[in-house]
Amino acid sequence: MIKLYDYELSVNCYKVRLLLNFLLVPHKLHSIDFFPGWEHKSEWFREINPLGHIPVIDDEGFLLRDSNAILIYLAAKYDQSCRWYPVHEPSRLGEVSQWMMFSEGTTNTASAARLHDSLGYEFDIEACREGAHKLFRVLDEHLWFQEQNGSSWLCSGDDPTLADLVIFPDVILSEEGGISRVGYPAIRRWADRFRHLPDFSLMAGVLPT
């Protein structure tokens, strides 16, 4: 069975849990004392991931780190419909990759602000919030145009993809970092649609619908 080295309040771990649950892949969680114990920086964990980051998965001995890499692997292996990661559709695959790159930005701004405000990380909080708002404006505008074209999701097509999945956690928890979504109506509608997907899973801090 897949083992996920996990911490409940980590957005990057949440991304992996979301996909495992959407795909109904059996898995077990190995809780890492990320906070306050910093177990991800411990000697034993650095043997699993020398970078000292979570999440990491262990799929019958195959170790993989970095949430985006893990998600691509899980989708390619366990999603027979190729819905989440459309490997056979070059243009949509390009779109998904583009927004997965974009999510590095939302994680490093919106979710960094959250770590500052909740767990006391020493970041430049004003820069984090300003950076998040710049990205949220781009996201909101894009989603508005998608809606005008009859599409509910970030990429073309009828189904959500990994693009939506990786950006959703940074967005839905942004208020914990002092980043209001009041000014982004298209983002709010998109996040609501995402939360209503079948087999959607919660994390602490994400309110049920």
Partner: peptide, 17 residues
């Protein structure tokens, strides 16, 4: 320890918003 602390983190995370 990690399991006990995770429980606390879940409860806190639910209260926060």
């Amino acid at each position: 320890d990690a399991t006990i602390k995770r429980f606390q983190a879940v409860i806190f995370g639910q209260d926060k918003p």
